[in-house]
Amino acid sequence: MGRWVTACAIDDVDEEDVIRFDHEGKVYAIYKSPQGEFFATNGVCTHEHAYLSDGLVMGDIIECPKHNGRFDYRTGAARSAPACVDLATFPVRIEGEDVLVEVG
């Protein structure tokens, strides 16, 4: 079973935006959708090493800052070249003001 860890506070992320969360040597990306819902994926692009937290969130899509590969951050699905391998996703829940992620 995974463990739930606090990644950030709900106000740390703007709507339609992403921040980076580091935990035990792993990098995660925490997203807030335009509707205010939270999601988490692996924080590094599957194409080439780049932090997705430097990328741009547009609707349900995170676009990698390096080469503009796109993923649906809700499912991790790769949506456009050069990205072709899906992102790992992680369950998220809100407790009070905290955003918790279930790490692997």
């Binding site: 990328g55 741009l56 800052p65």
Partner: peptide
């Protein structure tokens, strides 16, 4: 690396 990508994309 990485610090500028978002603004240029916008």
């Amino acid at each position: 690396d990485g610090s500028i990508a978002r603004d240029i994309r916008l």
